[in-house]
Design a protein around this nucleic acid. Sequence first.
DNA 1: ATCTTTATGATACGAAAGTATCATTAACGG
DNA 2: CCGTTAATGATACTTTCGTATCATAAAGAT
Lengths: 242, 242
Amino acid sequence: MPKRVDHEERRRQIADALLRTAAERGLHATGMREVAAEAGVSLRLVQYYFGTKEELLLAAMQYLAAGFAERGLARIRRMKETGSPASPRDVIAAILTEALPADDERRTFTVLYTAYFALSLTDPALAIAPLVKNSGAVIDVVAAQLRAAQAAGQTPAHLDPDLEALSLLALSAGLGTSVLGGQSSVEQAQAVIDYHLYRLFPASRPALRRQSGAGVAKMGQPAPSRNAFTTASLRVRGTVTL
Amino acid sequence: MPKRVDHEERRRQIADALLRTAAERGLHATGMREVAAEAGVSLRLVQYYFGTKEELLLAAMQYLAAGFAERGLARIRRMKETGSPASPRDVIAAILTEALPADDERRTFTVLYTAYFALSLTDPALAIAPLVKNSGAVIDVVAAQLRAAQAAGQTPAHLDPDLEALSLLALSAGLGTSVLGGQSSVEQAQAVIDYHLYRLFPASRPALRRQSGAGVAKMGQPAPSRNAFTTASLRVRGTVTL
DNA sequence: ATCTTTATGATACGAAAGTATCATTAACGG
DNA sequence: CCGTTAATGATACTTTCGTATCATAAAGAT
């Protein structure tokens, strides 16, 4: 056989090129030729690895979902290293925070997720399978964590884990789009998440704020900060509650 | 001058045709010719009333936003008629509920809103002005209602109105997309909203459930109901809390 | 060494969409 | 009464996009 090129690596390279251009030029507006140019290969090569555009879109969506899941797990793993063995609160906090467009990588994910989701609502070809399946699984994970926390006495027993899990994930998704739309800043969104986490885990610290650590911000967004309650609100919450 | 046709009515007719086809075939996939066919007019007419496609898209978006606002106000007005003079809770409940895709009209709105939002993230032409401006104004309205409720003693004084307003709207938006994606049923989403409303207005009834009244469901969706906690959860909440 | 298969490149084709052009009908003012 | 202008219709043009076709270089097997 010939030149022995890693098939999977090439597919990933091309799919990444699609995701990169789609994140700034739009998913529907990104053509095969642009993908090829971005990936530094010829149009024929894109056709070779992905016969049709739909196939490319679906594969890229799977890479997107896989990357998101991997980042979430890495975040949980990181928390586990630096402290106790991954409390339910930390796991849930990691999941919710991962959905916020706080840096370029997560912002790209949120934009692309929104684009794929919007497309899937009308395009029957994009059955949105990986995305929705992922979301459903995440709901179950959060609900399970809540149940574990209830069993450990960290969370009020009268709360409905399933309803709270759905609520939390809908909230983080809505906050993500709210940040993208410029209706709130990342800090405001994080404050809302921390507030609800505190509601569910009254004994926990309001959050591990890393505002003095290595940069978290540095976004393209001007951070509107409509009302100046950003971190102030979080502080107030923390003060009142702790 | 010639045949005296109501200019504005024609524009609305054509824009409505765009919204109708875009809701089921996609926003980017809807062409001028399809719009013309759906509206029952010729392509030239669409060009005559809207010079370019971008202009048509923007105008349709404004009609969409106006219709949404009008329905929300109508819902508030309806509540005002049947009861007390529109308590803050009722106003907020009306706003949040209006964002749920519970019937075909609201589902269409949610789908189109998502499509416009996704497009606006990458297409600089669609400055998404009306949509975002609307959302920002709604946040202010909700915050103001919360402040009024606090002044009236209906809502705990220690809550941050701005943070809660952002939280509620992000939640309802997230729940709307959650219903669209099939991750939750309309009933589950409504239960989550009612739960949070109860959290903010402890003295209020869990909700005015209209499960026996004129139909609310009758959707195209099969209503997945992943876990069977739908109305059950609401009942539990209501029982525990009241 | 040659032949087969993998891998890559250049180009062509057909469809669709947005836009522009030409043409025609109808109504009100002077 | 007629011409100017709003209003509408039919068609053509240009570009772009996805896809298909033709062509070739390279590497291992026999």
